[in-house]
Amino acid sequence: MLTENFKVRFYETDGLAHVSNTVVVGWFEAGREPIFKMFTPELDLTNWPLILASYKVDFVSQIFYGQEVEIRTYVSRIGNSSFETYQQVWQQNKLCAEGTATLVRFDYGSQKAVAIEPAIREQLMSHYIDLSKK
Rank of each mutant, 00 (worst) to 15 (best):
F64P: 00
R77T: 03
T85I: 09
T100Y: 03
Y11S: 10
I71F: 13
E70G: 02
F39W: 07
T13D: 09
P49C: 08
R72G: 05
L2K: 08
Q62N: 07
L45T: 06
K112I: 02
I51M: 10
I116S: 03
E68V: 07
K133Q: 13
I51E: 01
P41E: 11
A119Q: 12
V69H: 01
R105L: 10
T22H: 08
A119L: 11
T100L: 04
R77F: 14
V104E: 13
K112A: 05
F83T: 02
C96R: 14
V23P: 00
M38W: 07
E84F: 08
T13S: 15
I35N: 08
F106P: 00
W48N: 02
S81N: 06
A101I: 04
F10M: 04
G79C: 12
H18D: 04
L103A: 06
L43C: 09
A113I: 00
Y128S: 04
G15V: 06
E12G: 05
Q92C: 09
E70M: 14
D107G: 01
R9M: 11
G26K: 12
F28N: 00
D14S: 10
F59M: 03
E42M: 04
G26N: 15
F39L: 08
G31M: 03
K7N: 13
F10A: 04
F39K: 05
I129F: 11
E122V: 02
P34F: 14
L124I: 06
G79T: 06
E29W: 02
A30R: 13
Y55V: 01
M1Q: 11
D44Y: 11
Y128M: 12
I71G: 07
Q67M: 08
C96E: 09
M38P: 00
E4L: 13
N47H: 14
V57Q: 02
K134R: 14
M38F: 15
Y55S: 10
E12V: 04
L124F: 11
V89C: 11
G31I: 05
S81F: 06
A97H: 07
Y65D: 04
L45Q: 13
S81K: 13
W48K: 01
K37L: 04
A53W: 09
K7H: 12
A101M: 04
N21Y: 12
I63T: 15
K7P: 00
T102V: 15
P41V: 08
T46M: 09
A30G: 01
V89G: 01
F83E: 06
F39H: 06
Y65C: 05
T13N: 07
T102E: 15
K94H: 11
F36P: 00
Q67D: 07
E33M: 10
T100G: 02
R77V: 00
D58G: 07
Q123G: 08
A17P: 00
Y128N: 00
L43M: 14
K94R: 15
E4H: 12
Q67R: 10
S82I: 06
K7F: 11
R32H: 04
V60M: 13
I63E: 04
N93M: 02
E4A: 10
S132A: 08
L50K: 04
